[in-house]
Design a protein around this nucleic acid. Structure first.
Lengths: 152, 152
DNA sequence: CCCAATCCCAACCAATTTCCTCGGAATATA
DNA sequence: TATATTCCGAGGAAATTGGTTGGGATTGGG
């Protein structure tokens, strides 16, 4: 029931880009240093995100990466789906599928459990954008610890 | 973001035991045949469930397995935690921990995302018992397809 | 009382996935 | 041109997954 480091690192990297959005390209090196992630490994993750359009790249000296669209238009779920594949606790309820994988399919009660789990995960991930995360970070940094986040 | 087959098979096996609850011990062989799961592999899973008290065993001929308590007293979350470990999308928000794993800990915004995911998964899994699953199976088998489950 | 059915246990193993590393080519800036 | 950077593909060690194998312990039935 765990994410791999792909999703974990990927979200942190995207959050980093969101926080510096509008300040020009951010180099891989600076992301990897600030987030403590191996640069060559992170490079692979960002390559996936770039192919999916969530990130744009600027090559050459002073180059780097920029979010593909506004932080408010990038949901955590978008990032996770790119890096971890379709959200699904089991194969038989994968978000992406045409094949009904298991023969029990329609009458399988376990399956309906996994559907509920899948939907609850999707709901959470799709309700949070990078902009939301930046807002929360700003609040935390301003020392406003009592503030309870209720925008979700 | 996937469960291993341990959780998947384990829930199906426990559901099988729930459906035959009160009819004496159910042999490993019959569970594995009805659910299409390798018997020796399933044996390992049931061993874990037995050590956790979710299942009782009866040795010898005509022996088998019986639920450790009433189906209504066994939540899906109980089963998944035994077979898959504590529910957590990432290590840093594991249900079981005293060690704060990552140094960013308190101010990490990504972490609060994972906490929300963890809680939503737990809520779903802990709101469904084996008895609920049996009820739903009964409805499905009675052909009452229009019925919409709203007990969760 | 023996035998077959059944659970119990520990070790082993192949395939896959994870989490990287390495080396170099392409591209842009100063 | 020298340097900073992204882009790309290959390789690889370690862990995990999803089992298998073989044998021992326990019990009901003939």
């Amino acid at each position: 029931m765990k994410l791999s480091t792909r999703g974990e690192y990927g979200l942190r990297a995207m959050f980093e880009l969101a926080q510096r959005y509008g300040q020009g390209p951010v180099s891989l090196k600076s992301i990897s240093e600030r987030q403590g992630i191996s640069a060559p490994y992170l490079e692979q993750l960002i390559a996936s995100l770039r192919k999916a359009g969530l990130v744009r790249s600027v090559r050459g000296a002073q180059g780097g990466y920029i979010l593909g669209r506004e932080p408010s238009e990038i949901r955590v779920g978008d990032i996770i789906r790119v890096l971890e594949g379709p959200i699904a606790p089991t194969e038989c309820v994968s978000e992406k599928r045409g094949e009904t994988c298991c023969t029990r399919s329609e009458t399988c009660v376990a399956r309906s459990v996994w559907e509920k789990v899948r939907d609850s995960i999707s709901d959470v991930l799709d309700s949070i954008t990078l902009a939301d995360m930046c807002d929360e970070a700003a609040r935390l940094q301003s020392g406003d610890a009592q503030y309870v986040c209720n925008n979700i």
